[in-house]
Design a protein around this nucleic acid. Structure first.
Lengths: 244, 244
DNA sequence: TCTAAATACCGACCGTCGGTTTGTAATGGA
DNA sequence: TCCATTACAAACCGACGGTCGGTATTTAGA
């Protein structure tokens, strides 16, 4: 098949190193997906946003699904290294280390939420459920061994007492997952101006989660301090009135 | 636009009452979706299976998504009435009623799994995650009030002692959700012939879940008896060698 | 009982989407 | 300098979800 010669004033042909191009496309795609959801963003949209042709795109990605996989992988890798770093930075007995780990985790999530509006964009929009589910599922699965290992060490140490290490780890993660709904409500409240009430709702949820974890780990009430609402409070404010 | 006269030996024109037709289409669609997943089943497939034309289909359903909604709704309604019935059939103190409720629940799930291969078809196939997620999410959300109400009654009665009623309810549901993975493993084992080991794995999981719920409800270990492995054992066998 | 409105249904057609193919300009090593 | 490889462009394709004009059957009103 013959092909028209490229129109003289046609698009510029910009060459990039494969890694750079991939990252470039990925960034554009991620922003679009977070904003409008997986299904509502077409390959053409990504093409326009990234300033590349279809052929160029499919030279770097095999399918639309590959974009999702890559985004998920990026998040997973980040979450895992952050979790490992957080864990390595802990000291003291199992409970102290566990608390420090949880604090670092929520600090990470909160700052991430404030900086890139991950939570607002991904969580609030309906239709982004699939996206959110895949990302968190993968990230949680990656981080799970770290969590379970911490619990196991606590058991060995005699600080924790659990029915089943793996199940308790999964339960903690699964329960924390539900925080998304509370966070979503709080965000709506905060955007409506009622930041204090929003913080309060979040705080109560965190306290309750802490008490549940106490029980799961066989600890006296109040041992696990998940109640670092400061971080989430800061995040709420950062989202409500964003700063450069 | 002129249209060809319908070919003489063309498709028969069968008229049905709207409700019947809807249900008919829905059944065909559900079977296909459970078998091959949401994305891999086209409207045309449903058309062929249901023996209806495109125009006929879109006379009863506004979009493909409507099929999902309808299926989800059907399941939700079934689950809710079953849960309410199970709850109404209980007696005794809160713990006894709770145990009876759990037993009825798993009996319902197990028999359902055995009868219509819901679990095998929907859960094992990769790609059916979306389908499974939407169905269980809706069903759980519908049943949640029943669960929470039972817990609240136990608290009022003084039998239970929980940090936060709603959170505990959600946690129990979320944890039970994870059983899907264990069930999936067990199913694979059972289909490989090792039914005993499969039952055993399931049993251990159920015992652990029971102990977790004990703690969540502030009960002594062994209070909650989730360990009715008989039901699941029967289900496993029913799936492995199905009977007419 | 005749007729007209309502409605269940048909199937060709359409726009869009994800993905493929064919062709070309830039790059770098020999 | 040549040429193989790479990075990209753009025309193209089949399939999909959905629409639309039209037809057959039932139902309601007189």
């Amino acid at each position: 098949m013959k092909q028209e010669p490229p129109s003289a004033s046609g698009s510029r042909r910009v060459r990039m190193a494969p890694d750079q191009r991939r990252a470039h496309i990925l960034n554009a795609a991620q922003a679009l997906f977070f904003e409008r959801g997986w299904e509502d963003v077409t390959i053409s949209d990504v093409l326009d946003a990234a300033g590349i042709s279809k052929g160029g795109f499919y030279h770097h990605f095999a399918a639309k699904e590959d974009l999702l996989d890559a985004i998920v992988q990026r998040f997973t890798a980040e979450a895992l290294t952050a979790a490992q770093a957080a864990r390595a930075a802990t000291s003291g007995d199992a409970l102290a280390r566990f608390n420090a780990f949880l604090a670092a985790s929520s600090r990470w999530k909160a700052e991430r939420g404030a900086r890139m509006k991950f939570f607002t964009d991904v969580m609030l929009r309906p239709g982004n459920d699939i996206l959110f589910a895949r990302i968190t599922a993968a990230a949680n699965a990656a981080v799970m061994p770290v969590l379970i290992d911490m619990i196991a060490q606590g058991v060995d140490e005699g600080t924790f007492d659990v029915p089943d290490t793996a199940l308790v780890g999964e339960t903690i993660t699964a329960m924390s997952q539900g925080r998304r709904v509370t966070l979503s409500d709080a965000l709506r409240l905060a955007e409506g101006g009622d930041v204090d009430r929003a913080s309060d709702i979040l705080y109560r949820r965190l306290v309750a989660e802490g008490e549940v974890i106490d029980r799961l780990l066989g600890l006296p009430r109040g041992s696990v301090a998940l109640s670092n609402r400061r971080e989430y409070g800061l995040m709420l404010r950062a989202i409500v009135n964003p700063e450069p």
